[in-house]
Computed example of a mutant assay.
Amino acid sequence: MSGTAREIVERLLRAGREVDIDTFVGLMAPEGYLEWPYRPPGVPARVEGRTAIRRHLTEAAEAFITIDDHRNVVIHESLDPEVVIVEYDAHGRVVRTGAPFEQTVIAVFRVRDGQVLSCRDYLNPLPLLEALAGAQGART
């Protein structure tokens, strides 16, 4: 796919929110990776390569949280034309309980030749831990 780094990142974010795994994976470079420097237990530090990313997204789509909307989206284009930084609030729900879910995210993307080489997702792990605790409590 062609487009600016910003356009590619906007497409990737939309595909993620819409759970369009084929489009998401198609926007990733073959050697591309997703990384979570700050994560709750059980979330991998890094998922690398299209096959692993597809598997991870498929499993995540069946997980305990759905994201319906990205709000307060701010996209920063950097002096490096490959790097785009995105800030946003993810809004959704906890599948098991129906409770609302909100997550603040800052993500750093590197895009080259129309493909995402990397996405480093600096999310706040506390809402995930709270949602997991609430979902586990709903099972008992």
Rank of each mutant, 00 (worst) to 15 (best):
D89S: 10
P100V: 07
L117E: 09
L13G: 01
A138H: 08
P40R: 15
E59C: 00
V86L: 08
G42D: 09
N72I: 12
H70M: 14
T140F: 04
H76E: 12
D69E: 15
F24Y: 05
T97F: 13
V73T: 12
I21D: 05
Y33L: 03
R71T: 14
R110T: 13
E82N: 15
W36K: 00
P41H: 04
I8A: 03
E48Q: 09
M1I: 11
T58W: 03
I75V: 10
L132C: 06
A45I: 09
D121A: 07
D113R: 06
E31L: 04
L57D: 00
F109P: 02
V9N: 03
G3V: 12
V83L: 01
E82L: 13
P81G: 07
L13H: 06
E35Q: 13
V47I: 12
E10G: 08
P100F: 00
D121E: 15
N72V: 13
G26M: 00
F24D: 02
R54A: 13
C119S: 09
T104S: 08
P44M: 09
G134K: 07
L126E: 07
A45M: 14
W36A: 02
D68W: 09
L117S: 01
A107N: 07
E82G: 06
H76T: 15
T140K: 00
S2F: 14
G137K: 15
L126Y: 05
W36I: 07
A107K: 04
H76N: 06
Y88A: 08
V19I: 08
R55I: 14
E102Q: 09
A90P: 02
V108K: 01
Y33K: 01
L34I: 15
N72K: 02
G42S: 01
S2R: 06
V86Q: 00
L123M: 15
R120P: 11
V95C: 08
R14Q: 08
V108W: 02
M1Q: 11
S118V: 05
E7F: 14
G3D: 08
R55M: 14
E87P: 04
R39A: 10
A61Y: 10
V9Q: 04
A99M: 07
T66W: 09
L79N: 07
P81Y: 07
G92K: 06
E77C: 03
G134N: 11
W36G: 08
E77Y: 10
A52T: 07
V25W: 02
V105E: 06
R96S: 10
H91S: 02
A45C: 12
A135C: 12
E7K: 02
V83R: 02
R11Y: 06
D20M: 12
V105Y: 05
L27Y: 00
A99W: 06
R54L: 13
L27M: 03
R120N: 11
L34W: 09
D80E: 10
L129A: 01
A135D: 01
E62I: 14
H56G: 02
